[in-house]
Amino acid sequence: MLETADPQALARFYSELLGWEITKEDSDGAAVAPPEGVAYIAFQLSDGYVSPVWPAQEGVQRMTMHLDFEVVDLHAAVAHALELGAQEAGHQPQGNVRVMLDPAGHPFCLYLDGDNS
């Protein structure tokens, strides 16, 4: 469950990013799920939502979690995420990983498996 000021918009972002379907959408939240399996990501309306910062800074809302997505082509995956409204984080700690920020500011990582780097 990711908190956000606009759960429907964040659901649309992750639906497009991952190719998952929006499986729930109402005034309080939304969810996306893959075509097969039991996993899903839910988005909950949070009044007064404050985006986390990456990397962590003293006295500022810290990241409490992040999502990792393995990709085949890191450059293409980053370009796709940017087209959908993500931002590339300023701090990039590894060459085979790109830390991205979704439209609500949640960090997520796109990464290449060690065999693909």
Results as ranks from 00 to 15, higher is better:
W54K: 05
P55S: 07
A77S: 15
P52I: 12
A76M: 07
R62W: 14
M65K: 08
M100T: 01
A79K: 11
P93Q: 09
Q92Y: 11
Q57N: 02
H91N: 06
M100Q: 13
A86Q: 03
L101Y: 13
L45C: 02
T64N: 12
N96T: 02
A56D: 14
L45G: 00
G90H: 11
E83S: 13
G90Y: 08
P52C: 08
D102V: 08
R98D: 02
F69Y: 14
H66G: 01
G95Y: 06
P107C: 10
E58M: 12
Q44P: 00
E58S: 13
A42R: 06
W54F: 15
V72L: 05
R98I: 02
E58N: 10
D68P: 03
F69D: 00
H75K: 13
H91M: 05
V71G: 08
A81F: 07
M65V: 09
H75M: 03
A56H: 15
A77L: 07
V50N: 01
W54P: 00
A81M: 12
P55W: 12
E88P: 00
T64L: 08
T64Y: 08
E70D: 11
Q44I: 01
M100W: 14
R62S: 10
E70G: 02
M65C: 06
Q57W: 10
R62A: 12
L74I: 04
R98M: 04
G105N: 11
S51Q: 13
L67K: 01
Q57M: 14
H66Q: 10
H80A: 10
G105Q: 09
V60K: 15
N96C: 01
L67T: 04
L84G: 03
A79F: 01
V71H: 12
D68L: 04
G48T: 04
A76T: 07
G59I: 13
G90C: 05
L82H: 06
H75P: 00
A42G: 14
H91E: 12
P103D: 08
A89S: 12
P52V: 08
G59Q: 15
P93T: 07
V99M: 13
V53M: 05
V53R: 11
H80L: 05
L67P: 01
T64I: 10
V72W: 03
D73I: 02
Q57K: 15
D73G: 04
H66Y: 10
S51W: 08
S51M: 08
H80E: 12
Q61D: 04
A76Q: 13
L67D: 00
D68H: 07
G85R: 02
R62F: 02
L84M: 09
